[in-house]
Design a protein around this nucleic acid. Structure first.
Lengths: 212, 212
DNA sequence: GCGTAACCCTACGCACGAGTAGGTATGCTC
DNA sequence: GAGCATACCTACTCGTGCGTAGGGTTACGC
């Protein structure tokens, strides 16, 4: 036929990104299970078999989303928090980068991230990413601690780091739910909680349960 | 027939609890979507239509689980943290009760709780519970703050409380994933992070971003 | 002892959505 | 301009699992 083709033929790399964009959007809005491959395909302006051909099954597609968004976020943070800065400065820059990222991808990232916590197949994927973050935070604390000639058990370090990461994720959720909140301000508030607490710990102040 | 009935007939109230027990177990292990009503019914030792007759649809059933477990937890906390105690004592008792509860319901509660965050229909239900907790924590901080003749903006209070609740939830997850960890010790560690940080804030110490 | 309400079952209907079969068109290479 | 890989489609199959129709049996009140 001589008629103009309804839609353009595009190279694979481009289409894959469009599909991922659509997938992130739909997964975010509907949740993993409620999202249908048909809707994702339609939103990407393509037919379903193409999605299967390029990105594989629904699970693989979700993992691909997680991967892309996760990598982007990690890069944003890593780029901001240079390892040769003092601990508080590093923490501050990391937090600012993190909340900045979440603020810029509100419905995209935060909701996707929330999804992944629940569904077993992805919990592992996410846990890996979180573990990396926890490790970085713990390493930072440990570094600062040793600089003061102090030392605490690895497990305490891990748990504290875990708590900080948890608090941060929690505020990210809060940020995602409050569209007009300021990421920078949120980062400052988080810093207040995290650093003032951490600073005390770094100076050897410890809270102990009362004797009862 | 004169044969013994295969299984006993039981009053509704008893069956409902058995069903809820089974539902919590299956939802925890499989996640909301992967869990099937058939498996829940089988696990409760009853047939599917009974579940529908007593507890309604799958969603309603899940909400019922959330409700029962949530109420139990709230009661455990409320019973421990009497409102006339000083702030640190209240926080400590509340945390200890909370981690004690999670420790005793590891696979039950924490996983159920995690599920609810992702699935849209329940996010609201959960948000309500969390909001109540945040409110309590914020109220406690506010009270302690006023006792020192100090005051901070409501939004700051809310965000700090939100971060503390988030950190606590996060450690609850950690606890659920580490079967041989001690709830009491976890509560102590959380207290270290939360209280030493909060105490600083209560005394008017504030962290501010560097000028750049 | 007899009715009635509460308890309980074995099937099934039916929709929805993941994944595929099989085929068409377009542009790139030589 | 023939050949081939790549981009793309319509139209199915088929499993899974929610929710229900329709009917049986036990206990309890009177």
């Amino acid at each position: 036929m001589s008629s103009v083709p309804a839609f353009k033929r595009l190279p694979r790399a481009v289409r894959e990104q469009q599909m991922l964009d659509a997938a992130v959007k739909v997964f975010s809005r509907r949740g993993f299970h409620a999202a249908s491959m048909d809707e994702i395909a339609e939103d990407a302006g393509i037919s379903k078999p193409m999605v299967y051909a390029y990105l594989g099954t629904k699970e693989e597609l979700f993992v691909a989303c997680l991967h892309r968004e996760g990598t982007r976020m990690m890069q944003a943070i890593a780029g901001a928090a240079a390892p040769d800065l003092p601990a508080d400065e590093r923490l501050w820059r990391g937090l600012r980068a993190f909340f900045g990222f979440v603020g810029a991808h509100r419905d995209g990232w935060a909701v996707l991230y929330r999804q992944a916590r629940g569904e077993q197949p992805f919990a592992g994927e996410l846990a890996t990413m979180r573990a990396r973050l926890v490790e970085v935070v713990a390493g930072m604390l440990d570094h600062a601690l040793r600089a003061e000639g102090r030392e605490i058990a690895a497990i305490d370090l891990e748990v504290v780091a875990y708590a900080l990461v948890g608090a941060t994720e929690s505020l990210a959720d809060w940020l995602a739910d409050h569209p007009d909140a300021d990421p920078e301000k949120t980062a400052t508030r988080m810093m207040n909680v995290a650093w003032l607490g951490a600073a005390q710990l770094l100076h050897g102040v410890t809270w102990r349960p009362p004797a009862d």
